[in-house]
Write a protein that binds this DNA or RNA. Structure first.
Lengths: 201, 201
DNA sequence: ATTTGGATTAACCATTTGGTTAAACTAAAT
DNA sequence: ATTTAGTTTAACCAAATGGTTAATCCAAAT
C-alpha cells in the first residue's frame, strides 16, 4: 500500500530528518507529520536510531547512483564531465538538503555507512573509474592529476554552492530565484572550467 | 584573567559547540569541560542560546578575516589567488570543524548573522572586491566570469574537501595522514586550476 | 570586625523526550 | 459466532535537560 502507516512514517521521517538531522528531530513531530500515533514509529522501526539509519541508507544510496552511472559510462571524458555536472546539479536542485544531511551525520559517526558502501561496492566503482582515468592520462588525453584530486574538484564545484547557499546568499545579497539561476549558470561554467583544465587537445 | 570562569566557559563552549552543534551539545557537558558548576553558564551567559550565539559570532568572524584581507590586497590576481588558497587551506586544516558548524547553523537559522555581517561590513568588502575584479576584466587581464561565480569556485575548491572529509575518506580509503597530505597537495593544484582558467596572458 | 557584592554551589523544578505497555480495535480465518 | 493475529491508541514512565534559586563562600572596602 502506498499510504500504509509504515510508508507514511517513512516519508514523514525522511522529510523531517533531512531538514533537522537526528538531534534536531522529534519522534512526536514525525508522528504528527505522518498522521499516526507516536507509538507506531517504535512499532514499525523499533527506535529513533533505527528509523534514522533506514532513512540515511536510502538517501546515501541516491547520492551515489548518479556518480556511479556517469563515471562508468564509456563516452569521452569531455562528455562525461558535462553529463556529470548536469545531472548532479539537477539532482541537487531538487534535493538541496541531501549533502548537508549526509556530511553532518557522517561527521558525527564516520562508520555509519561502511556496510552500505560495501553493498553498493563503491570501492570497486572508484577503482574502475580510476583505472579508466589513468589510462586516458597515459594516452596523453587527460592532464596528469591524481584521480582523487579530480574527483574532489568535480564534487566541490557542484556540491559546495548548494551546501553553502544560506551563507552565499547573505554575503552576495541575491534572492532565492537569483540563486537558483546562478546554479543553473554553473552547469556550463563548471564543465568549461574542468574541461579546459583537464582535456589535452 | 585568562583562566577566569567566564573564559573557561567560553573556551569549553567553543570546543563542544563546534563539534556537536547547538542541538547536540549539553550545558552539563560544557560545564564539565570548563570545570565549573553548570549554574555558572547561566550566570555569565543567561541561556544556552545566548552562549551559542556568542561562540557563533566569534567563529563566523574568523572565517571572513582571511577572505577580506586577501581580496582587498592590491597585488596581481595571480598572487591573490595563491595567497587566498594557501591561507584558507592552512586555516581550515587547523580548524576543520568550522565550515560545517557555520553552514549547519546558518541553514537552521539564516538570519543568525545578519547583524554580524553588517558589523564587519561584508557587503562593502564584497562590492569593493567585485569592482576591482571587474576592472581587471575590462582591462582584458581576467576571464569574463561573474564575480560571484569566481568566488563560488574559489571557496568550493578550498572548503568542500575539508567539509566532506569523512565521506571522501571512506570512498577513497585513505588514512588521516594521507588525507592531510592530499589537502596540502591541493594548495598548488587549486591555485593552478583557477589561475590557468582565470588569467589571460 | 562588619558589611557588601559578586562568585559559586547543591538542590530543585518543569518540561521534554524516547520508549513501553496493556487494552482496544479490526478484519480475515475457522 | 469465535478465534486469531496484526494494528492502533491512550496512558504512562524514567531519564535527561535547560534553567532557577536560596544559601554559602570569599575577598575587598568600610
Amino acid at each position: 500500500m502506498l499510504d500504509s502507516a509504515e510508508q507514511k512514517i517513512k516519508e514523514a521521517a525522511r522529510k523531517i530528518l533531512l531538514v533537522k538531522g537526528f538531534d534536531g528531530s522529534r519522534m512526536q513531530e514525525i508522528a504528527d507529520e505522518a498522521g499516526v500515533n507516536k507509538a507506531m514509529l517504535n512499532y514499525y522501526f523499533r527506535s529513533k536510531k533505527a528509523l534514522f539509519q533506514m532513512v540515511f541508507m536510502e538517501e546515501f544510496g541516491k547520492l551515489f547512483e548518479n556518480m556511479i552511472t556517469v563515471l562508468l559510462d564509456d563516452c569521452p571524458w569531455e562528455d562525461k564531465i558535462k553529463a556529470f555536472v548536469n545531472t548532479e546539479l539537477n539532482h541537487l536542485l531538487q534535493a538541496p538538503q541531501l549533502p548537508l544531511f549526509i556530511i553532518n551525520e557522517m561527521s558525527k559517526n564516520p562508520h555509519l555507512m561502511e556496510e552500505k558502501l560495501k553493498s553498493i561496492s563503491v570501492g570497486n566503482v572508484f577503482e574502475m573509474a580510476k583505472t579508466k582515468y589513468e589510462k586516458e592520462i597515459q594516452d596523453g588525453k587527460l592532464r596528469n592529476l591524481p584521480f582523487i584530486q579530480f574527483l574532489m574538484n568535480l564534487q566541490s564545484l557542484c556540491i559546495f554552492p548548494i551546501l553553502a547557499k544560506p551563507v552565499l546568499m547573505q554575503i552576495s545579497k541575491v534572492s532565492d530565484m537569483e540563486y537558483h539561476n546562478l546554479i543553473n549558470q554553473r552547469k556550463a561554467l563548471v564543465s568549461e572550467l574542468l574541461i579546459s583544465y583537464m582535456i589535452i587537445k
